[in-house]
Design a binder for these strands. Sequence first.
DNA 1: GACCTGCTGCGGGATG
Length: 741
Amino acid sequence: MSATASSSFHLLDERIQRFIWAEGWDSLRDAQEAAIPLIVKGDRDVIVAAATAAGKTEAAFLPALTHLVQADAPGLAVYISPLKALINDQFGRLDRLCEQLEVPVWPWHGDISASSKSRFLSQRRGVLLITPESLEAMLCNRGTAIGSTFERLSYLVVDELHAFIGTERGKQLQSLMHRIERVIGRRVPRIGLSATLGDMGLAAAFLRPGHGAAVALVESKSSGGELRILVKGYEEPRVVRGEQEDGESEPITPAQIAGHLFKGLRGSNNLVFPNSRREVERYTHLLTRMCDAQQVPNEFWPHHGSLSKEIRAETEAALKQKERPATAICTNTLELGIDIGAVKSVAQIGPPPTVASLRQRLGRSGRRKGEPAVLRGYCVEDALGGQASIADELRLGSVQMAAMISLLLEGWFEPPSVKGAHLSTLVQQVLSFIAQNGGATIGQLHGLLCAPATPFSVVAKDEFVELIRHLGQKELLVQDSSGVLLHGRVGEKLVNHYRFYAAFASDEEFRIVAGGKSLGTLPVSQVLTIGQRILFAGRTWKVEDIDEEQKTIHVSRAVGGAPPLFSGGAGRTHTRVRQRMRQLLEGDEQPAYLDEVARRFLAEGRANYRTRSLSDAYVLDQGREVLLLTWLGDAANEAIACLLRRRGFVAVPAGPGVEVLKGQATLEDVVDVLFDAGLDEAPPLDVLLADTRNLQREKWDWVLPDRLLRKAYGSQHLDLEEALGWIRSLPGNGGFVGVSS
DNA sequence: GACCTGCTGCGGGATG
């Protein structure tokens, strides 16, 4: 490390400089160079955004540790991570450096012993590595000790900031940091570490609500290397009725795709993303069977959230070791965080959930200098003919894949959605603060959580009062004679269980056990019968017994069988993606990365788009239903559906548009009502959703009063402004109406 | 027609 090359190096403590020499690092990365002077003084909030493996952790900790060891009294830095695995990784990396500095490092999460935790509590100095849930538990259960525990706190470091923005857990994290600062009576510098973000302003506003403009921003300049892309199309033949008498017929394209993967991926490390756990099982099964059939060692390993820790660890170990090549078939469990080394290529089967997610997945490939990142895309479309749907005719899956790749190449990806009010998490934070403080007045709670520049500042005073009253009716809260709020009968029970600490809900699941050995878990919503065959961990099993008390399914090995269904929610597609899809269908651009079949899909989509005159027509008459083709994102389509429902129609968002049941009405009636909706003022969310049921999505939604539940849902899921903007921009506004059938 | 994350305090009994 030369003195002239780096000015930031000299800002670091001498012992840290010696450590860097000893490690043999030739230079500081640009993100570290820029972040050190901003962080070392410990007087401001900073976001460091850089691609994976750019040394973000060091960018935060080299200056933060310098500050800690040079302070008059021993200080404390708190590092907050979304994953336990990441805490364990970071502990390994930090502990060696910190040992030389005589700074203790304390991992703290659910798997850490109580004795280690109490040793930290007696010392209260060094670096604490913790999850939001463990921090919640600490505030909840050790309320009176919080002031002294964090007395010497100098930094709050948030890792994987992008994974928190716009989520229930992110809202919880904001509230936890805020509550700690309130107890110790001063602001603590917040350091956010993130993958590159589209909108740094949103991230800054998230890190320091109300004062985002004052957050210092460091963005790594290191540009992405070369990217090689191949997208292959596969056509699934139509199933002729009568051929499937002995049960479900298996589709044939997965075996073809697996064959291509087998040839292309063997001999190197890769990740395959088929978008669902069920498909992970399907492809792992196909690929391991191919290894068996060719009598070669297996190179394909499954990884998803329903698999046991042991099976996942086996896959991670296969990827990490260097002796033999390994490919993981996975869900987004391998998208974030844990270090699995560089992979040669990434395969994406079907369009990815979002461009942002595709980008994150590709970040795992081509990380060594001079090596390109490689993306293999696979598109499956049903053969046309007979009763093909509009989605089939327009080849929407393939068009979406091409649209998302073209946006990726332009450097665009979805900004995080930060409009959600997350009132569910407000309920949790009210209950938690009462536990911490041994009771609270309504004014105290409102001032803490809902005042300007707090995490729930969108909640008005009257709404907060309504919420607290409702929590009283539900026996979550009671008021004592002096007006202080305490936990009610139900609240007491819920707070005094460890499930309370997580802000997000989770499905109840069955354990799957074979011969006494746990294989993993399966969501409880799934219907199962004894004797049925399921695919799990890449193998076929027969269900022997279902123990509802113990929530356990006992299985034995079996041959053949249909894969089990996993429960799931709905994806959210952004308007920009839908508009690029339309642009692709209207234009004649030929993306070079499409193979012959994928090119044919695009050509067929374009031909059908023209035949139906969809450049002009936005109303498609489909007999009993009308399809309004908006080419907007899901949030706007859902808002349009709500506007029509308010006026008596049955309407649901449907891919690139909104499907409306005609009922007794005519197509012209539907269009009239649509224009009518565009003339009105934007209705408040609770009015818009007045007739809609089943809005509960988050953990505490079940205790929200109806009006606030609608507000919470609407703030997160509807884009009313965009919906009204679309209606108002329709051609002629009552004049020309495009109809196609 | 999706996916992921996380979790305490205490008491009882065994062991050094």
